[in-house]
Design a binder for these strands. Structure first.
Length: 260
DNA sequence: ATGCCGACAGGATGTCGA
């Protein structure tokens, strides 16, 4: 099965691009972030016409996450635990039956957190702590699990074109990178890095300053696998070419192929 | 040091993104 994730930067503004990519890529499961719309205005019909079931955790104007699946979506849960006072739609998970068992998938849109030293940065770190605690719980299920989405974290210096350009940014703060390492240290595997050692492979290029043309990108969209999922990993890739399409998102899709 | 670009809500321009 092919599992993909993509920060689409508004699913309604991007619907033609997203549909074209789905037709071409044919993922079994697709997680979207920054859908920027509520559940009632999510373009469900366009995806159902392609044979997908949809789970949506939307929000007006900002954030919003969704999961599309060719197989049924079960045990759908919206929001991380300990969500009192958190009205951002940033997390959605579902269980999906496979031929032989079950796989669990989460669509994740971690907070940006800029600028550092503000309550926005504190919210980012707190949200990542909540994600870690929830991941710890999910790992006790000992089932194939994919935590996929926009983590808004540049894990390593080689995951950006120039670390010096990011030292003051929330995406590259030591605390942010430590939060990502803590997730890996639970026993999760970075699917892309498990398949590719080469530096400078990016999933995001800013719309500004000719970032795409100069290949000034960052790798911030990640697929994390439980041990049971990592054992089934066949390949992973970044759909870089999508950034050159007309009216692109500033992020591109990334996918992992598992023998499920 | 700052804007660059783009989506959104609303109906001008500020907020947010990363």
């Amino acid at each position: 099965m092919k599992f993909a994730t993509w920060n689409v930067n508004s699913v309604r503004a991007r619907i033609e691009t997203v549909v074209a990519w789905l037709k071409e890529t044919q993922p079994d499961v697709a997680c979207f972030q920054e859908i920027k719309t509520t559940d009632d205005t999510f373009p469900r019909d366009a995806f159902e016409a392609l044979g997908y079931n949809c789970a949506v955790h939307g929000q007006k104007s900002y954030n919003g996450v969704a999961i599309l699946s060719k197989r049924p979506l079960e045990d759908v849960r919206a929001g991380l635990p300990e969500g009192d006072g958190d009205d951002h739609a940033r997390y959605l998970e579902a269980q999906i039956p496979t031929g032989s068992g079950m796989v669990r998938v989460a669509s994740i849109y971690a907070p940006n957190g800029n600028p550092p030293g503000t309550d926005r940065f504190a919210y980012k770190l707190n949200w990542l702590e909540r994600l870690k605690r929830h991941a710890t719980e999910l790992l006790t299920y000992e089932e194939p699990l994919l935590l996929m989405g926009d983590y808004n974290i540049i894990p390593m210096p080689e995951d950006c074109y120039d670390p010096k350009a990011w030292v003051n940014d929330a995406l590259y703060q030591p605390e942010s990178r430590a939060a990502y390492r803590k997730l890996l240290n639970l026993g999760l595997t970075d699917a892309f890095r498990a398949c590719h050692a080469e530096p400078h492979r990016y999933t995001f290029w800013d719309y500004q300053a000719g970032s795409w043309q100069k290949d000034h990108g960052i790798r911030i969209d990640h697929i994390l696998l439980s041990p049971q999922a990592a054992d089934l990993l066949q390949g992973s890739a970044i759909d870089r070419r999508v950034r050159a399409w007309e009216k692109p998102s500033d992020h591109v899709p990334i996918w992992a192929d598992l023998t499920l």
